[in-house]
Design a protein around this nucleic acid. Structure first.
Lengths: 226, 226
DNA sequence: TATTGACAAATAATGTACAATAAAGGAATT
DNA sequence: AATTCCTTTATTGTACATTATTTGTCAATA
């Protein structure tokens, strides 16, 4: 297990960590701080987190429901491997879902929506990937504007969850210049298609957007492996 | 009936009334035995299930992870409404995913696969919707044969989960004659397309299959409301 | 000698009981 | 009628008991 062993560090984490047990565990899994298939022992985690076992058990069950943890009766929990295949799987699903959401958005977008998208896009271009967190935030707003009003809450939820995961994985990774250019280009193309009331074009742009994003993350994962 | 191995994991030794706490709770929610937004009190459920509170708490957390219950801090769990919109949302997602899975299957299907599909189809036609459980089982095998070998485990898992939900909702509902005819026709068409190595045709057939299934379930839900 | 099998000790998951804490409801006082 | 305070109710956290699984030892056998 890759956790730090310093007691100072533990105390710090326990006292200051704002996140819930669930969030911390989930983050450990997604970011790869715990290895794939590694066993998650309740008592051990509880003492590490500075709580009793029940909160840990409940967090593990939730993670199991979300698919981050695999549990077998009387043998406890193991972390599900979050590898390149996992990213590929998620992105392939998003390549199917996001174009559908986008197509619908083109049909209901108002002038104000387009203006807001353009405003966000300008902000994104202005900061030019200077601050990772801020960029991610703006990008999130950009896509949320399109998806959040969709009637299919289940699909939107799925998107949110997937995006969350992908962000957690890619956090800290640098974005290549070529990918930066592509992101901006795809966003602009998307806006143009919405303006032109071209659902197919928009769907196509978003499909390439998602696919490119996935490929980029997988690249980075591969590089960071060595 | 057993859907797959992951359910075997869920299946527990827990006494008396069949399935695990998790399964019973989930079934109560999906089948509508507990009302939408109804509060789920831990102590009450525990005494009803004849256990202490911890197993209930863990089951609730898992269901939360899967999206069947909504929890707010310090005020417990409520059941998520399983209504027609929910079915529509799920089916719309499946209309996107299943054709993709099917298209891939067409590319890897062997002569033996086709023969097995035909054998299953014959069995299905032979029993002609006489036994709901047996039909559901065969139908499951039919689609599993196509999907189970797919590399995108995440997508397949999503399909399994969705199918599970839809089956739980529609269980007990009668299948209209017209729907019966459509099911058989779509299956046959699917087999024909696979034989002819026509991915687009197969994807198209499965899309109509899913869509029809969803419409039928929603019909039945509406009827049973009165 | 190496391998297998039985069995006991250790380890860890699962279940029970209960204490602490937060929210909801209701009566008394202003 | 609004507010405070107290009681009730239910969730959340802690401690411990039970049960299942894993592990290691040791003798019996080939």
């Amino acid at each position: 297990m890759k956790f730090d062993t310093s007691d100072m560090q533990h105390a710090q984490q326990n006292d200051e960590a704002g996140g819930s047990i669930y969030e911390r565990l989930r983050d450990d899994i997604i970011s790869g701080r715990v290895k794939a298939n590694e066993r998650l022992k309740v008592a051990e985690l509880a003492s590490r987190m500075g709580t009793s076992t029940n909160p840990v058990r409940e967090a593990l069950q939730q993670l199991r429901g979300e698919g981050f943890v695999v549990m077998t009766p009387n043998r406890g929990a193991r972390v599900r491997p979050i590898d390149e295949d996992f990213v590929r799987d998620i992105c392939e699903i998003e390549v199917l879902i996001e174009p559908a959401l986008t197509r619908w958005f083109v049909g209901i977008a108002t002038r104000e929506d387009v203006e807001e998208l353009e405003r966000l896009q300008e902000e994104i271009e202005a900061m030019n990937f200077g601050d990772e967190l801020a960029h991610s935030n703006l990008d999130l707003q950009f896509h949320q504007l399109m998806y959040n009003r969709h009637y299919n809450r289940h699909a939107v939820e799925l998107w949110v969850r997937h995006r969350h995961i992908l962000w957690a994985i890619s956090r800290g990774f640098p974005t290549s210049l070529s990918r930066q250019a592509n992101v901006l280009g795809e966003h602009r193309e998307l806006i143009a298609c919405i303006k032109a009331q071209d659902p197919e074009g928009a769907a196509n742009a978003i499909a390439r957007h998602v696919e490119g994003s996935g490929r980029h993350i997988m690249e980075r994962m591969r590089l960071s492996k060595r």
